[in-house]
């Protein structure tokens, strides 16, 4: 105890306390911050009714209306097509957890089979973009460089050069495209989920969509994409580079200056 109380007055004590306080604050923040993970909907799991309409009545009708006509809490689903349902539900965006600027991606709740049933039901309400087949979204053999040009013209303004995401107005955002499934990329372009505009086959044909998917697979794939220069630093450009330069570059150099200028240990003093 005596040792502790003596060290309490050490010149560096304040620094230690500060670091400790920062760690505690950070820990508390992490503990209380809204978790991204959605709690699995028990009702969905306990469902035994096989039909999409019944799935819909339980999971979706509260916001989108009993017949998909929409309400104040959710848009009409008439004519959105099966592709939109597949995208929204398979990325976990639907069912939405809470109202907000934007419905985030989260853990999906419905199985593939259920999504198929839901899609079939919504598609029956009115014609719309159809869930793409594997031949449509398979990027094999597509032109990566052309995809890059298309991406920079159509997508990069919101999703960043290599799909790291970006900000929109009033808290909305374009999500990062890291490791997004080719099928979902295709569906997103086709249907324009939430505030994203659509890029329908009439203006961006299947081949061009495949090029874009191939490009993303090349430059934004955690297993494959190489960053020859070293750490990617988030791929966000000069802001993170500047932060890294200050903290690790200048930070390291200041540590070095302290060592160079420090007095060498004396023989007598402890």
């Amino acid at each position: 105890m005596k040792k502790l109380s003596a060290r309490r007055r050490h010149p560096l004590a304040a620094v230690v306390v500060l670091l400790f306080a920062l760690a505690v604050t950070g820990g508390l923040y992490a503990a209380f911050a809204p978790a991204d993970k959605a709690k699995a909907d028990d009702s969905a799991q306990s469902l035994t009714i096989e039909e999409g309409k019944k799935l819909y009545a339980v999971g979706c009708a509260t916001c989108h209306g009993t017949g998909g006509q929409g309400s104040t809490d959710g848009p009409s689903l008439v004519g959105v097509g099966s592709a939109a349902v597949d995208f929204q539900v398979s990325t976990g965006r639907m069912p939405a957890q809470q109202p907000g600027a934007q419905v985030p991606k989260k853990k999906r709740i419905y199985s593939d089979a259920d999504i198929e049933k839901l899609s079939a039901y919504i598609a029956s309400l009115g014609p719309g973009p159809v869930t793409p087949t594997k031949e449509q979204y398979n990027p094999e053999g597509a032109d990566i460089a052309k995809g890059g040009e298309l991406f920079r013209t159509n997508c990069a303004q919101c999703h960043n050069f290599t799909g790291k995401g970006g900000a929109l107005s009033n808290g909305k955002y374009a999500p990062p495209l890291d490791d997004v499934d080719p099928k979902q990329i295709y569906e997103a372009m086709q249907t324009g989920p939430q505030n994203m505009p659509s890029f329908p086959d009439t203006t961006m044909p299947t081949k061009e969509k495949q090029d874009i998917i191939a490009y993303l697979g090349e430059v934004n794939n955690s297993d494959k994409t190489s960053t020859p220069g070293g750490m990617e630093l988030g791929g966000l450009g000069p802001v993170t580079e500047g932060l890294f330069g200050w903290i690790f570059g200048l930070g390291a150099l200041i540590v070095v200056t302290i060592w160079v200028a420090a007095r060498t240990a004396k023989a007598k003093k402890s």
Binding site: T153, G229, G235, G237
Partner: peptide
């Protein structure tokens, strides 16, 4: 650490842009 990976950014064209332009 990578800095300014221009290969990921692409060549300049006045009608193209990326978010996070700083």
């Amino acid at each position: 650490a990578t800095i300014n990976p221009i290969w990921a950014i692409g060549p300049y064209r006045p009608d193209q842009v990326s978010t996070g332009a700083q």
